[in-house]
Amino acid sequence: MTRKRLAGLAFLGIPTVYLLAFFVLPLLSMAVLSLWRTENYHIIREASLGNFATLLTEPAYRTFLMRSVVMALSVSALCIAISWPVAYAIMLYGGRYKLMFSLALAVPFLTGEVLRVIALQGLLGPMGIINATLIRMGAAPLRFLMYSNVASAVGLVYLYLPISITVIYLSLSNSDARLVDAAKIFGASPVQAFFQVTWPLNLFGTMIAAVLCFIPCLSTTLVPRFLGGPDGTLYGMALSQQFGESGTWALGAAMGVVLFAVSIAATALAFRLDLRRTGYSGLGRS
């Protein structure tokens, strides 16, 4: 008995300490720093809410945050709208190639953001495949695809589509097909069966997919920098500049705290769904 308790302490304790030390403690120290201020690249250790006041009163930061929230919301909605038919099609028609289709999504996902932004330049840039083809054909290049918010949005969809398809696909493959069959046997039309059985059963998975798109979109630094236009500065980009060019770490930390709060709020909102009613099957049933 004591031996089991000791093992439990080790197996749960070591990862907990690891996460507290390298994940929670850094976040707490960022929160502490957000209350201090930076003057001439020196940190003044006096507690005040000045940074948050700056973030509230300076219109630029509000614009960046609002623009990022709108961008992240629309990108997540787009990703979900595209992912559902794709995940559903893989599930229905994938047959014995299901595995290949789902692994094929991992290649773009695992290649890293920098290299994928390079690939996106090949798609959207002034010399990218779309505009180069148009120029070859004698047409004018599409201006809205070059260094604009539309280009940023397309880029973000490109970056986070694989993960949202994968999450919805996993949710679909974990939900119980016999329930749909049962609905059909009892006379539901396919459309009814979808909206009254399949959709609510997979709502939780859909929400997870949306959150996993929303959070990185909110904080993206690379995409707006390389694809966005002059009025395309997003919050994450402004945040990283505080730690880079401008050196105002304390303000950057405050921006980080706000970003953290917004992501947690979004997650909490998504998770307010009643899990039992959505029939989420947890980590998978055996």
Binding site: M30, I215, G236
Partner: peptide
């Protein structure tokens, strides 16, 4: 559910 950039900057801090 915590953005990568936050993991980065908070560890830096």
């Amino acid at each position: 559910f915590v953005a990568e950039v936050l993991v980065g900057i908070s560890s830096l801090v």
